[in-house]
């Protein structure tokens, strides 16, 4: 292994996080679709299936003619899954936005401001999503 200069550790861990979270989200999506089709024993249209795979909150199947929504689809297990998925997905997304922004915004002060705004937005979206999962659904 050759070393040609110092490497930013945080940058590397965020790079690694992007890949690992991608694997997690791919498996979570596949598991959600399998669960919806095998254990759901229900009528679900295509949008409901991918909504459930993307974010398994019971509001996402409530509008379809799925029976016993509350005991089957709204419990602690899916809420914890949802929260983990929300955290991982929003960090993956906002970190991706940071990488894109670093490519197109050149002045250092403006870049710092925009990155701060991205961090605030991340916290706001994650907070709002967590409140949605645990307070209302």
């Amino acid at each position: 292994m050759r070393r040609l200069g110092e490497c930013n550790g945080l940058e590397y861990y965020l790079w690694l996080f992007t890949r690992l979270s991608a694997i997690l989200m791919l498996f979570a999506g596949a598991a959600g679709i399998v669960y919806a089709n095998i254990w759901g024993r229900t009528m679900m249209d295509a949008p409901a299936q991918y909504r459930w795979a993307f974010f398994p909150i019971y509001w996402h199947v409530q509008n379809t003619d799925v029976p016993d929504v509350f005991p089957l689809w709204s419990n602690a297990f899916w809420r914890v899954c949802c929260t983990i998925l929300l955290f991982v997905a929003s960090l993956h997304g906002f970190n991706g936005l940071r990488v894109v922004v670093e490519d197109y915004i050149h002045p250092a002060v403006l870049l710092l401001l925009v990155k701060g705004l991205i961090a605030l937005l991340f916290m706001f979206v994650f907070g709002a999503g967590t409140v949605i999962i645990f307070e209302w659904f």
Binding site: A89, G93, G96, F124, V125, A128, G129, E135
Partner: peptide, 23 residues
Amino acid sequence: HRITGLGILLLVSVHVLAAFFMN
């Protein structure tokens, strides 16, 4: 890949925030 990533981020964030404020 970049455009679709930004599309997901924008649309899903707006959807989550709209669901939050709707409730």
